[in-house]
């Protein structure tokens, strides 16, 4: 099995760290992983994206032109990546900030109200974990316990007290994924 994912949104939405936690979860589940970010002075409000690949076998190209799954968190990224999902693949998006919802008829489309849910949870910074949970519902590529281990590995020890809150967000996202279209 190989899962090729693009996660794309604004810098500051936690796109890169969400990819990192996913990659770490893959490592914990003994998979091959690669994580390739867009980089540069993105802090000035630009877009950020990361390609994550999880696989049972050696990973060839860390850079791709089509994906099994696209997780899309702003309109620019929708414009850029919607057409790069493989036919039959998965697109997950947060409707907050999306003006033109996805139009493709040949892919599975899901919605996650990540922004709302994170606000309800009382910590907008858990947004990316909500989305991660939603993704794992659509694509159970790693088990929840690997995610917990992944969080432990990727967060510095001084931030470990945040893990329960993050796991709650993952769980909430897992429960809140909405199917828009199945093929």
């Amino acid at each position: 099995m190989t899962e090729e994912i693009i996660i794309a949104g604004f810098g500051g939405q936690g796109v890169l760290s969400m990819g990192k936690i996913l990659a770490y979860s893959g490592v914990m589940a003994d998979q091959e992983v690669s994580w390739f970010p867009s980089y540069g002075p993105e802090m000035r409000g630009g877009t950020a994206n990361v390609t994550v690949i999880l696989s049972e076998s050696r990973i060839s190209s860390p850079v791709l032109n089509e994906y099994d799954t696209a997780i899309i968190l702003n309109q620019q990224s929708m414009d850029k990546f919607e057409h790069m999902v493989k036919p039959g693949g998965v697109l997950i998006y947060d409707p907050n900030g999306i003006i033109h919802p996805p139009k493709r008829a040949d892919i599975n489309i899901y919605k996650i109200e990540g922004t709302l849910i994170a606000a309800e949870l009382g910590n907008v910074k858990t947004f990316n974990m909500v989305v991660l949970g939603a993704y794992l519902k659509a694509k159970p590529v790693v088990k929840m316990e690997s995610v917990e281990k992944g969080l432990q590995k990727s967060l510095p020890t001084r931030h470990h007290y945040l893990i329960p809150m993050n796991l709650e967000a993952v769980q909430k996202g897992f429960e809140s994924l909405e199917l828009v279209q199945a093929v």
């Binding site: 990192k20 990659a23 490592v27 091959e32 992983v33 690669s34 994580w35 390739f36 970010p37 980089y39 990973i59 860390p62 850079v63």
Partner: peptide, 10 residues
């Protein structure tokens, strides 16, 4: 290059 420098792998 920037690909290998910036990417994470095991």
């Amino acid at each position: 290059d920037g690909v290998i420098g910036q990417m994470m792998e095991k």
